[in-house]
Write a protein that binds this DNA or RNA. Sequence first.
DNA 1: TCACAATGCTTCGTACTAGAACAAAATTTA
DNA 2: TAAATTTTGTTCTAGTACGAAGCATTGTGA
Lengths: 154, 154
Amino acid sequence: MKLKYDKPAFLPTLRELVRCNQSFERFSGAHVRMLGLTPPQFDVIATLGNTEGMSCKELGEKTLITKGTLTGVLDRLEQRRLIERREDAADARRTQIALTPAGESLFVQVFPAHLAHLERAFSRLSGAELKQLQTGLAALHHALDKSIAVMNAD
Amino acid sequence: MKLKYDKPAFLPTLRELVRCNQSFERFSGAHVRMLGLTPPQFDVIATLGNTEGMSCKELGEKTLITKGTLTGVLDRLEQRRLIERREDAADARRTQIALTPAGESLFVQVFPAHLAHLERAFSRLSGAELKQLQTGLAALHHALDKSIAVMNAD
DNA sequence: TCACAATGCTTCGTACTAGAACAAAATTTA
DNA sequence: TAAATTTTGTTCTAGTACGAAGCATTGTGA
């Protein structure tokens, strides 16, 4: 029995969004693994690189890793001596997260390498195409965030 | 010490891609959970809905869930009696996966509901905007797949 | 006809995911 | 001033993710 409903106009765009992201995660993730990191670990190191450190809250906001998950990612990075946790003198609830010298060294190595890897794919698009895509993504991003706000207000 | 490198032109587009996808996953995932499913479980049910069933390989290709992971997702759906595994008469290596009547019933309920949920966000964009975004995503998707092929050839 | 290669699915190890609950600390309110 | 509320990070649970290895089956080639 075929379900009767009008095929929504946004489905082709949705499909491309999902497919595009799948390919991106696969292309990006495979390279990050070659660098000896997992994608979330890379995200954390990339976010901390060239900073004096930041709180878990701030780190979570920038990497978009939820706080329950972030604790575990930080645990493993700490275990590898790539980051360290410091007490915050002003607020005992807070932990300051910073790269260790080894972490900073790894950042200097992996960050440009990964950007170069990603550029191999992105440079297949022209500057105008990238600009236009960025505009469209920003619009959808904005629409989604508005809809999330509405959803959370219920 | 600040790392010296030219800021790649694609970074703003990359940032929007990641952000946009984050928001999408969050908006979509939250609703799917409200429906009592997890995102991968929903993906499988949505893919199987209105079909006579398909092989694990085919299902993996359509949902883009890797095969090791798919086995577990199917285990849990089978446990909830929403899908069933059948032998393939033509090839003993294959398993045919199909929705049970309960699974089909759930599909009829959740699929349009989720499409309606997603439409609330996507309808904030005009038809022309969606079309343009689709084009840009398809181009990037294509570029990524080409780069993946190059990467795998090494 | 048989050895070898490829395929399909499962198992395994390790890392992660989201969100609820929790405890400690800081802020707000009466 | 003290109770109530909010904030921060951790713990916990069920589910997931990837890719390698393994096993059974099918396909290929000499």
